[in-house]
């Protein structure tokens, strides 16, 4: 068991290293750099000297190998550097934006699961019945709508009828100002919730179908247990386990939709940061934020795997 856990942890560390290397080179392979990106149109009045000076200030003139070695050594020492864009340390930027993303992410998950679980459950129980089709049809319809589209239309409706305040400037945390925070998150959490859990719903349905055919379910029914008990106590619990295994993927999907939603609602979260940093070629922020997201998903996967290994000894061997 111990060997298995160590093996998994080593694997996870290696994956994080790969992600870091990937994002380090990816942002540098892209055309342009911060020296020119930050000037935008004003670069037209900049001389070549001007840009070269800027590049030297940012350390972008060093050979890529040297930059990589520096980055690696700094990252190992947990020094993520300073943002080109804001000149704050990257740790500060992450510390500031991560809570927003976690808040929104959790809200999205709550919405997503409270849609996906009942729909997946009901449509499995009433497989191929009218209820299955209509519920699943509706859910899939909602899942198929692009988040940016639903969010744009929803926010327009809110503005037109003056429904509630979307506090895009105050940017309140849930624990600071719950009332304003929740209305601010309301549209993105529903738009993201519908889109982020498509996989969960489908997986749950097919798992439920499989579990419901298992012998132990049949036995439970034969014992004369009520159907509701059979489903919640026996079937759902077992069907949910595989859903948990894809948790890492689900989180990655949710973060993906957060990229657009945070942008649309001025939520200064991780998704917003990664997009801004990518377009502005803010190398330190981009590579670190991608790294943080990766650590997050890899860690989730690791925990799930290890727990699974504990539960199911067969997995350790594979």
């Amino acid at each position: 068991m111990q060997a298995y856990i160590i093996r998994r942890i080593l694997g996870a560390v290696f994956v994080v290293f790969l992600v870091g290397t990937f994002s380090f080179f990816a942002i540098r392979v892209l055309p342009g750099d911060f020296a020119t990106a930050s000037l935008g149109l004003d670069a037209g009045s900049a001389s070549a000297d001007n840009i070269a000076q800027r590049r030297a200030d940012l350390g972008l003139d060093k050979p890529i190998g040297e930059q990589y070695a520096n980055w690696l050594w700094d990252t190992v020492r947990l020094d993520l550097g300073d943002s080109f864009l804001t000149q704050n340390t990257v740790w500060y930027e992450i510390g500031r934006s991560l809570p927003y993303s976690i808040e929104l992410g959790v809200l999205i998950m709550i919405v997503g699961f409270s849609v996906a679980i009942p729909v997946g459950l009901i449509s499995a129980i009433f497989q191929d019945k009218a209820l299955d089709y209509s519920l699943r049809g509706l859910a899939i319809l909602a899942l198929a709508a692009p988040v940016f589209w639903t969010a744009a239309i929803a926010s327009l409706v809110v503005l037109q009828w003056d429904l509630f305040l979307i506090d895009v400037i105050g940017q309140p945390h849930l624990w600071e100002d719950p009332g304003n925070a929740i209305t601010w998150y309301l549209i993105p959490m529903f738009a993201g919730g519908f889109a982020g859990t498509a996989t969960t719903m489908r997986l749950l349905r097919s798992q439920m179908l499989e579990v419901l055919r298992q012998d132990y379910v049949r036995t439970a029914r034969a014992k004369g247990l009520r159907e509701s008990v059979v489903i919640t106590r026996h079937a759902l619990r077992n069907a949910l386990l595989p859903v948990l295994t894809v948790m890492g993927v689900t989180i990655a999907t949710i973060i993906g939709s957060q990229v657009i939603l945070e942008n649309m609602f001025n939520i200064p979260g991780i998704g917003n940061k990664v997009l801004t940093a990518l377009f502005a070629r803010d190398n330190p922020v981009f590579q670190s934020v991608v790294l943080i997201i990766a650590v997050f998903t890899v860690l989730t996967n690791l925990v799930v795997d290890i727990m699974y290994g504990v539960i199911d000894p067969r997995i350790r061997l594979s």
Binding site: D167, M264, F265, N266, N272
Partner: peptide, 20 residues
Amino acid sequence: WVQTFQDPNAYRIAFEQKQV
């Protein structure tokens, strides 16, 4: 001065709700 709204949607929300 508040930071740039990356998306016109956010700017519009802020203006219509008298935050800017």
